[in-house]
Structure formats: structure tokens, C-alpha cells
Design a protein around this nucleic acid. Structure first.
Lengths: 337, 337
DNA sequence: CTGAAAGCGCTTACAG
DNA sequence: CTGAAAGCGCTTACAG
């Protein structure tokens, strides 16, 4: 008895790697089949046996290997869709995620969330060794080696709010939206305007800026400056205040509502009549009365969820309509800011 | 050659279940080892062989079985934490999720999201056959059979914003918060107040109401009515407008900010001087100037993430400090509403 | 370069 | 009631 206990403790200490059903069988003196039955609550075992085996299992702090169980039973959740978020996320991205989630939920799929962290490679290792049926890539491009990894696994993916002619993409027209911003500022009588954007140089930003600039050109308005700052309400508050007090300008187009929120606060605190427009139409924009270029995050998210599920289920696989390439239009929302 | 093609097509059509490496081996005439090497891009294969095998793989639309690969390589992402959301979610729940997510992210864990849908049993089947290390159960109790399923899998879980003496729980003190609401309304000079809550009868609601009532009693204030309505801003707008116009009351305590938002709008539209207080302090509350009882969703989420990770890593397993049972305090936020 | 075999941790008929 | 064996789909030394 003491020896018996001693053996168990030794093993408990030695075995750094998790205990298996085999260990339990060996130590308890039963066969693996019996152990398996006990662990799964089969009624076909003696009570005595059950107790003995359970005791050993507890002692070893046994945790069944789900992967092995999945393989043998063939029952594993095929209904998980993964999403890959960019390193820095605006509130807008989170609203897209909410849209994806709600549609996925209706379709009976679970959501697995990845995030491009410091070590991009590590994240892709995780992705590689995780179990999911399809991937939604949000707002940023995949590198060639990442794509080929996915191809090798024959794992499907769809870009959301990013576009690549050769891949499934659902996205907003940023050039058009930039133009809307110019039109808005013109309508409010602005002549000398500034653009304030995120530090991160993204395709979305470039397209939006380009659309804005060509809009200004058409209207004979002047782009006095372009500023690039971190996504931080306080920072944009400060920058806007400086602009209003030190420079002769009458309108600002912010790359995103996150940024514009700080700017609007500065304008109001100073009682300035400068005109401000943001981008995205996040929830807060409605509450504070910020004019913006609306991108319907909910629609985008839901479309993305539907697309990846269709692809994964192979409903589109043999059709000519792959890759999916869908461009959505933004809308101008005038709240008088 | 035609025969060859015919065979492939037949198989392609017949095999409803996915093609395996064995199928490719059989059809291509090579061994499974070679097929595996090709599929994994090993350089130790003739080019000719590679092409032939790849052709068959494509024809069969081969998708590697990740589960089998995981089992044999032993490389599968152990760093996934799952959360289980209640059927109906307030915005507050979503803010908790954001907190969980951000902390999990820092700790290098992925997030898998489940949601109690129509068929509760089905969700638990999914949970059972999904691979994750620990589970965070948000805002609602597990049933006995669900707990025993988790126990059988030796899967750890922690309740967040729900409490049970026998399980790991991190939660807010609702009784205290209800008292704060009463104190707020008294301070604003209210005498005749109403409580408006969600239809769903939850522990949280009961505790909050009880705290509110005993707060009123201490202060000699009258609870004129208790109304229970669906979580819907329009609905709470309507109900509040009716209360203001038809009944002699001077204050309303809303179970959640989601509800209070509609009420505040009604108050302002009518120019009423009724006092309104909500609960949670969701983002929108700050934007519209709603007084509320603040529960720090970010802190709660982050604590939950840390707790489950600690438990999963066994850092607390042999200590006496299990189960974790931590009660957080809410705070009163006076925005003058 | 390629095949045959062993094995990952588990379940499940099949015999006793 | 219990054990021995086959097998889930894959990888990986080990021989050729």
C-alpha cells in the first residue's frame, strides 16, 4: 500500500508530460479498454473497478486528450470560423467583429479569434495548429508565405475590408468615401482644410487620402496640411486644438471617428466654428453628433460571415464566381459638425 | 488514361466523406509515406512523383485532417480559452468580452466564443468536441449535467459576473449597487420612484432590486412601481414617456444603461425634470451624460482572463485558494441625469 | 528517392 | 465485467 502510493507519487512527479490512459491502465492494473469505459461512464464496469481506476486517474490528474478522442470518434466541431485581426484595432474593427459574430451565431458557427501580435510568425504557428474551417482576414494583407501555408492546408479565407483581385475580398470603396469628405467640407463652406490620419500606412488610408485630394482638386479647395498621429483621443484633441488656435484653416477630415472624436471635443471646448468630419460612423459618432462617412460595419461583418461559410461548405466551389470580389459603398452622414 | 480519369471522378463523386492520404496513395500508386512527404513539401521526392501526387490530391480536393496531424505531431495550440456568453447580451457583456480579449491577447492566448443559442444542448455538444484549455462562463449558471460534462473532461472554468460558492467566481456586488441607485435618487430629491428592469429573471437582477428596495426603505422613499420590459431602447423610451406623462413619479432606476438610454431620451424630449440613473456605465453612458452605477467591465474581463489562465496552467491547483471567489465593488457615477 | 512499419492517445466491437 | 486487438488519419525514423 505504501509502495503503491509511492509509485503513484513518483510518477506524478516525474511525468512532466500529461498522463495518458495507458498510464492509468498500467498503474491500476487494468486494460486500457476498461479504463476508457470507466472514464466515459460506461455502465459495463464493476463498481470496485470504477473506484480503483478513478482514484488513479485523480492521482495522476488525468485530462483526456481531446485531439485523440476527436480523431477516433470523428466527432469534432467542424463549425468554427476563425478571424484574424490586425495589430492595432479601431473601434470600427470591433464593430465589424460584432457583425461577423452575430451572423456566425445565426448560422450555427463558433468564432475563434486571432490577433496579429508582436511576433507575427508565432501567431501563424497558432493558426496552423488550430482547428477551424475557414478564416476571415480583417483589414490587412497576408504575406506570400502565410498564404501558401493556408493553401497547403487547403484552408479557405476571405479578406474583409481589404482587397486583392486574386483572393476573396469584401470591402468598402475608400476612394469614394474620401471624395464624400471633400464634398461635405465644401458644402459647409470650407476652403482651407487639413487631413489628420493614423500613423499606420495602410492601403485603406492611401485610397481614402487620394479620394479626398482629388475631391479637393475638383472643387478648387486647398489641402493646407496632412498630419499623421497615433490613434488616441487625447492626442487628436491636442493636435486639433493647436491647429485651430495657430493656423488659418476652416475644416478637418479625420481618417477615422476614433480620431475625430478628440477633434470634435477640441472644437467645442474652444467654441470654434471649424468643420469636422470623421470616417466609419462608429456608435459614439451618433451620440456626440459627429458628421462622418458611414461604413456599415454590421453589414460588412455579416456578409463576411456568410461568404466564408458558403465557401467552406463548398456551395460556391465549382462555380465561376470565385474569387468573391465585392465592393461596398459608404454613405455621407451629415450631423452638422 | 480515360479509365484512370474515370476512376478518379467516380471516387470524387462517391466519397461523400473527405479523401484521406490513403486514398491518394491508392489512386496514385505510391505509399502513404511518400504522399505525406509531398503534401508537406519535403525535398526528398522526385519532381515527377510530386506532380503526380499533387494532381491526385487536387482532383480529390484533399484537405488534410488537422486533428490527425495534431495527434501525431503533438503540436496543437494549447493556448485557447473559450468563453460562453448568455443567450441575450447587453452591450455591457460585450465590453467584458473586450476586456477578456485584450488580456488574453497579452498573455498569448486565443479566444474561442460560444453562445447559448436556441438549443442549449447543441451548444454544449460543440463545447464538448472543441479544443480549448479553459472556459469562462459569463453571467449565467451552468446546469448540473453541464458541470459534470466539464468535470469529466477535467476542463476548468470560472464564472464571470455570476457567483457560486463552490465554483471559481469573479463578480460584482449587485446588492451594493442597487443601494447606490437609491442613494443617488434620494440625493437628487426624489421621493416616488420606479424600477424598470429586463424581462429575464436573473440572480443579478434580483440582488440589484433587493439592494435598491432596502436602500429605499432606509431612506423612507416609495417604490411606486416595478416594470419589466424587453431590452430595447425604443421600448424603454415608450414606457418612460408614459410614466412621465401619466404617473406622479420623480425618479427611475433602470436595471441597465441599455434600458436607461431610451429613458433619458424620453426625459429630454419631454423636457421633464425626472431623475434617471442606469447601471453598468457602458461607453454610451459617458457620451450622453447618463448617471449610472459603474461596473468596470474592462477590469472584470481582465481579471477573468488572468484567473482562467492561472488555473489552466495549474499555478493555483495545489493551493488552498481554490475556488477563487472574488467580489468587486461598483461605483456611483453622477453625471447629473 | 520510396515503402513498410510503428506509433500518437483514444474508442469500440469482438471474444471470452 | 474485462482484455486484446484493430483502427481513426497522419508523420517519421528505418531500411532499402
Amino acid at each position: 500500500m505504501t509502495f503503491f502510493t509511492a509509485v503513484i507519487i513518483m510518477i506524478d512527479v516525474m511525468e512532466k508530460s500529461a498522463a495518458t490512459i495507458k498510464d492509468i491502465a498500467r498503474i491500476s492494473g487494468y486494460g486500457v479498454g476498461t479504463v476508457s469505459r470507466v472514464l466515459n461512464g460506461s455502465p459495463l464496469v464493476r463498481d470496485e473497478t470504477r473506484k480503483r481506476i478513478m482514484a488513479v486517474a485523480r492521482k495522476l490528474n488525468y485530462r483526456p486528450n481531446k485531439v485523440a478522442k476527436m480523431l477516433v470518434t470523428g466527432r469534432f466541431s467542424q463549425s468554427t470560423i476563425a478571424i484574424l485581426l490586425p495589430k492595432i484595432t479601431h473601434r470600427f474593427s470591433m464593430e465589424i467583429v460584432a457583425g461577423i459574430y452575430s451572423r456566425l451565431n445565426e448560422l450555427g458557427y463558433n468564432l475563434l479569434v486571432f490577433n496579429i501580435g508582436k511576433k507575427r510568425e508565432e501567431v501563424f504557428e497558432h493558426i496552423r495548429y488550430s482547428h477551424f474551417s475557414g478564416l476571415i482576414v480583417l483589414l490587412n494583407p497576408l504575406r506570400p508565405e502565410e498564404k501558401s501555408m493556408l493553401k497547403a492546408e487547403n484552408a479557405h479565407f476571405v479578406y474583409l475590408d481589404f482587397h486583392d483581385r486574386n483572393e476573396n475580398s469584401i470591402f468598402f470603396d475608400n476612394h469614394l468615401g474620401g471624395g464624400y469628405a471633400a464634398a461635405y467640407l465644401e458644402e459647409k463652406g470650407c476652403k482651407r482644410v487639413v487631413f489628420i490620419g493614423d500613423l499606420a500606412k495602410t492601403v485603406q488610408r492611401e485610397e481614402r487620402v487620394e479620394g479626398f485630394k482629388s475631391g479637393l482638386r475638383e472643387r478648387g479647395m486647398d489641402l493646407i496640411d496632412e498630419l499623421y498621429i497615433p490613434i488616441d483621443e487625447k492626442e487628436s484633441y491636442r493636435v486639433t486644438r493647436d491647429l485651430i488656435t495657430r493656423r488659418r484653416i476652416d475644416g478637418i477630415f479625420f481618417y477615422s471617428d476614433d480620431l475625430a472624436l478628440g477633434g470634435l471635443k477640441a472644437k467645442r471646448d474652444l467654441g470654434s466654428d471649424i468643420r469636422i468630419i470623421g470616417y466609419d460612423d462608429i456608435q459614439a459618432a451618433g451620440y456626440v453628433g459627429l458628421s462622418t462617412v458611414r461604413q456599415d460595419s454590421n453589414v460588412l461583418g455579416r456578409l463576411g460571415a456568410e461568404a466564408i461559410v458558403e465557401i467552406v461548405k463548398g456551395e460556391k466551389l465549382r462555380a465561376e464566381d470565385l474569387p468573391i470580389y465585392k465592393c461596398l459603398k459608404p454613405q455621407l452622414v451629415d450631423r452638422g459638425s
